[in-house]
């Protein structure tokens, strides 16, 4: 799952990037409105964490612009402006959630997860488990359970499986998957998706992920 963090306090960004990475997210961070706007148009983010007061503009105005342009990516406002009239303004501008600073990382993570699950049409799972067709992905443990067997997942495997399980039965192109696995500026290895699909198949079985040559992959899960 890929996030965009728009925040100008470098220390906070540093800490948050660490925490988000640990939680299995790939996050692009910027402190500029213009760059955020550019990244948003280049990348398919699952969720945006947006501050209001930024050096080159107002986060709410950017959000309003996005909504007017038909960009419906879930946005959580992360701001020191946490009075009710400010929250009202935030939601009216198109925010999906609002978290006041200072905040507990856990709360931010819960809210991001809830927003992403809602965007993918999944019911909110309080026990941090995503289930599809016999595959149970534990987001807390970053492990997968099939029947009685539980397998630990590497960070990359976890990210990839989460993408699959959020969009089951859908054709996902290699480019789409790569895009979600790497940060914007990362050097992208061309065969990374193939490598990790192979890893996952070892744990889930061969039929869980179908390859459509030249097109991409479809996640089926285990039980039909």
């Amino acid at each position: 799952m890929k996030l965009l963090l728009v925040e100008d306090n470098t220390l906070l960004v540093e800490e948050l990037l660490k925490q988000l990475k640990q939680a299995g997210y790939v996050t692009d961070a910027t402190d500029k409105i213009s760059e955020a706007d550019y990244l948003m148009k280049e990348t398919n983010y699952d969720c945006v964490i947006l501050d209001i007061g930024l050096p080159d503009g107002n986060g709410l105005e950017l959000l309003e612009r996005w909504r007017e342009q038909g960009i419906h990516t879930p946005v959580i406002m992360l701001t020191a402006r946490s009075q009710w009239h400010e929250k009202v303004e935030g939601f009216n501008s198109g925010a999906d959630d609002y978290l006041g600073k200072p905040f507990h990382t856990q709360e931010l993570l819960v809210r991001i997860q809830a927003l992403i699950q809602r965007a993918y049409g999944k019911a909110n799972s309080p026990n941090k488990q995503l289930t599809y067709a016999g595959v149970v992905l534990d987001e807390g443990q970053q492990s997968v359970t099939i029947g009685e067997n539980t397998f630990e997942l590497t960070a990359m495997e976890f990210r990839l499986l989460k993408i699959f399980i959020m969009s089951p039965k859908k054709l996902l192109s290699k480019a789409q998957l790569t895009d979600k696995l790497y940060q914007f500026d990362d050097e992208k290895e061309s065969n990374v998706v193939e490598v990790y699909v192979t890893h996952l198949r070892k744990k889930l079985g061969k039929t869980a992920i179908e390859t459509r040559r030249g097109q991409g992959y479809i996640f089926h899960g285990i039980t039909p």
């Binding site: 306090n9 906070l12 925490q19 020191a80 946490s82 600073k101 905040f103």
Partner: peptide, 11 residues
């Protein structure tokens, strides 16, 4: 005050 506080909270 709240932004530095948020940083400290993370740390």
């Amino acid at each position: 005050l709240k932004t530095p506080l948020a940083v400290m909270q993370q740390q």
